[in-house]
Simulated scan of single mutants.
Amino acid sequence: MVRLIAGLVGLFFSGMLLISFVTGAYTAVTEPATPTVESRFHKHPKKVSFKHDGPFGHYDKAQLQRGLKVYAEVCSACHSLNQIAFRNFEDLGYSEDEVKAIAKGWKTEVPSINPETGEPATRPGLPSDKIPAPFANETAARAANNNALPPDLSLMTKARHNGTAYVYSLLTGYQPVPASLPKENRPGTGLHYNPYFANLNLAMAPPLTGDDQVTFDDGTKATKEQMAKDVAAFLTWTAEPKMEARKTAGWASLVFLIIFTALTYLSYRTIWADKKH
């Protein structure tokens, strides 16, 4: 009796699931969703390749150093990088002395306390310090950016789908407002049209305004596209600094599993070789 009731209950729920599926499919076909303005004008990230792409990819340290320079001279005016310490830059190929120089020469000093007066003060950075934020607090950040809060960039490429390409596309994607864009969706005061941004209108003005905005130490031509690509790679590193180690561990684990499987199979054949079926 219990099995009969259980079977009937299962049949009932299976029937309801089937009815819901058929009803939903019918509605989707007969009453398709009306596309929104955002979906009509919004673009997916551009196709762009990096050396760290794919299972065998690895970071290009020269590119990461160029990306750091773009961040330091352009992006850091508004955006923080509060998950990264100066000493982490050694992973980009800088020596200990070079990291000390970068920390000491950073344009925003580190908040501190005057030991003599106990009053708030600032001091030059040390390798152990996190990258100082450009603003003292959220209120100051909004006041300097038309009430918009510039997001922290430490994990930005992890927070967005296809994040590296998204950052590159956003930085190179500012365009004139299309004539067909409805009036109510046109950017208002202090906003800028960018089809790679979800709602099309971005409070951030184009940060990369032309070529040679920075000077790369390795002599690479600082075109707008090159700067955007380099800083996108750098922000991928800030979000996944251990990516190379993770890939190496993954391949080592895969090789181990293959060898273990082969040894297990050979052991099975050896143990059962003289057994009759």
Rank of each mutant, 00 (worst) to 15 (best):
R160E: 11
H161G: 11
N162Q: 13
G163K: 04
T164P: 03
T164M: 02
A165P: 00
A165V: 03
V167C: 08
V167K: 11
S169W: 08
L170D: 04
L171M: 08
T172R: 08
Q175G: 00
V177G: 02
P178E: 01
A179Q: 15
A179C: 09
A179W: 09
S180H: 00
L181K: 01
P182R: 00
P182E: 04
P182G: 01
P182A: 01
K183L: 13
K183Y: 04
E184N: 14
E184V: 10
E184F: 06
N185T: 06
R186E: 13
P187H: 11
T189H: 13
T189D: 14
G190I: 04
G190Y: 09
G190E: 08
L191M: 14
L191Q: 14
H192R: 06
Y193W: 05
Y193A: 03
N194L: 05
N194H: 08
P195F: 06
P195S: 06
P195M: 06
P195G: 08
F197D: 15
N199W: 12
N199M: 14
N199V: 15
L200I: 06
N201C: 12
N201D: 14
A203N: 12
A203Q: 09
M204W: 08
P206E: 06
L208G: 11
L208T: 06
L208K: 08
Q213R: 04
Q213N: 02
Q213Y: 02
V214K: 06
T215E: 13
F216T: 03
D217R: 13
D218S: 02
D218W: 04
G219W: 14
K221L: 10
A222H: 09
K224G: 00
K224F: 00
K224D: 00
K224C: 00
Q226G: 00
M227E: 10
M227C: 07
A228T: 10
A228M: 06
D230W: 05
V231D: 05
A233F: 07
F234I: 07
A239G: 15
E240D: 11
P241Y: 02
P241Q: 01
M243N: 03
M243K: 09
A245G: 03
K247L: 14
K247A: 02
K247M: 07
T248Q: 14
A249D: 15
A249S: 12
A252R: 14
S253P: 00
S253D: 07
S253R: 10
I259N: 05
T261F: 15
A262P: 02
A262F: 13
A262D: 07
L263S: 09
Y265T: 11
Y265E: 08
L266N: 03
Y268M: 03
R269W: 09
R269H: 09
I271K: 11
W272G: 07
A273I: 14
D274E: 15
D274W: 07
K275G: 07
